[in-house]
Amino acid sequence: MSALKRVQQWATFARIWHVYDAAWQNPFHSAKLLKKYLMGLHKPIYHPLNDCGDHVIVINTGDIALPEDEWKKRAYFHHTGYPGGASWTVAWELHDKDPTMILKKAVYSSMDGNLQRRYTMERLHLFPDGKVPADLMKNVSNQIQQIRPVPKRLDHYSEQERKEFPKLIDYPKDYILR
């Protein structure tokens, strides 16, 4: 490298804005991925005390996919602080109330509980659908790759494709399909 460019540091310390599409993604696996960008763990200059985390915009948090029967089984605990103030909310119920909350809690609990955690969470912007304010979206310069492929629904395939799909058997004429 030339002597003039020896200490060239293009945007090394700049905050980058990433966008992540949470549709059909496991929120708990996504949290580990998002945490890396929020805390700046993906940069070789990382140090716990240097403030090098990036912003992450997450869209479609309403369409997250929980594994197995987690929607029914996972309970979120809250306590008002008063006697008898404990409450347990099941995942589907919480998701009905606020479609961003499950991912937010997943990211929050994936990080260590220190003084920096609240400030790191401020850099996470969650949106239940694709509608992001233009003043946030104009900052975005990178898209984070989804961790698993989005499955295509049967009714999104064309009639042609469905007909041409190889079949093992033909149903008998009198077979009742439910």
Binding site: L41, H42, K43, P44, I45, Y46, H47, P48
Partner: peptide, 13 residues
């Protein structure tokens, strides 16, 4: 641990 984090970050790039 910090070295491993930094090397991993560099490798991922």
């Amino acid at each position: 641990n910090l070295w491993v984090t930094r090397i991993t970050a560099g490798c991922e790039q």
